[in-house]
Design a binder for these strands. Structure first.
Length: 271
DNA sequence: CAGTCGCCCTGCGTGC
DNA sequence: TGCACGCAGGGCGACT
């Protein structure tokens, strides 16, 4: 489910609801997420105030005086703030009880998500310290990506989905950005010119920014911190449209698997 | 070393 | 209506 725009949408929604709030208690209803939810979280977080809510890659960070909560939504996770007496639903695995009677709940049917607790600077955490630049940040540009890709034989789609190269470009937006840039997803990274890398980076930024504006993409089950869906799915040009006509040239779009992910593209517009 | 692949889960859409 | 099957937005870590 959530790619960067969905996490950003969630982050922006949570920020005013959580900043400055005191956490009274952490209730772990099912701690078997991607990594087990640690006992230390429930022991050390309560009593602290949330100083800041931010995002790094697809991780949400809740900073407190004693440490930081790292939350990853995996494929099916969502977070919302609701009255603490609202009945729990089936996949509400972790909740943070807040002073004032509200609760932050993580729902994650597939349990690919994670809730981690770290006392060190979160940027130094082993899961964050190897991550590449933010796609909407200033250091991510065509020259950077061209430099990284110049000796790599792997398909360009694999390159832009590699979190060590650039974070937050998931399957949907990788497909969409490659279409917008007119680059075939299987093209070897080393066989793309600097000019085309510049176009690709512009496309990645554009697609992500537009998706954030639309509140993310709801394919099945994404909802933001208030439970609202995103509307970017209406703007998708290729993702999920195999067999349908390309909106640019009219030829049927194709689907094939690249690095184990369904990949959608136009065989004419993308070279 | 770069790059591929399996796998952690549940739910939903499709086709018989 | 029921069931089996394939597929799903992520990404670590084992493996070649």
């Amino acid at each position: 489910m959530p790619e960067l725009p969905e996490v950003e949408t969630t982050c922006r929604g949570l920020e005013p609801l959580l900043t400055g709030k005191k956490v009274l208690e952490v209730l772990v209803h099912n701690g078997r997420l991607r990594w087990p939810v640690s006992l230390e979280l429930a022991l050390e977080l309560p009593g602290s105030h949330i100083r800041q809510v931010r995002r790094r890659a697809k991780y949400l960070l809740l900073d407190t005086k004693r440490g930081t909560v790292l939350i990853h939504l995996g494929m099916s996770g969502s977070l919302r703030v609701i009255a603490m007496d609202t009945p729990l639903e089936k996949h509400d695995h972790v909740e943070f009880i807040l002073a004032g009677g509200q609760s932050l709940r993580l729902r994650d049917p597939r349990r690919f998500g994670a809730v981690l607790w770290t006392r060190e600077a979160p940027e130094a955490h082993r899961l964050l310290c190897t991550l590449g630049p933010e796609p909407l940040g200033e250091t991510f540009d065509g020259d950077y990506l061209h430099h990284i890709g110049r000796q790599q034989q792997r398909p360009i789609k694999s390159l832009i989905m590699d979190g060590k190269v650039v974070v937050g470009v998931g399957n949907i937006y990788a497909c969409e950005a490659l279409f917008a840039a007119g680059i075939h997803p299987l093209r070897a990274a080393q066989r793309i010119s600097l000019a085309r890398y510049r176009a690709l980076v512009a496309a990645i930024r554009e697609v992500l920014a537009e998706a954030i504006k639309a509140g993310g993409t709801t394919l099945r089950d994404f909802s933001d911190s208030q439970g609202r869906p995103g509307y970017f799915s209406q703007q998708l040009q290729v993702y999920g449209r195999a067999g349908e006509d390309c909106r640019r040239c009219g030829v049927p779009l194709r689907r094939r698997v690249i690095a184990q992910r369904g990949t959608f593209y136009c065989p004419v517009c993308q070279r």
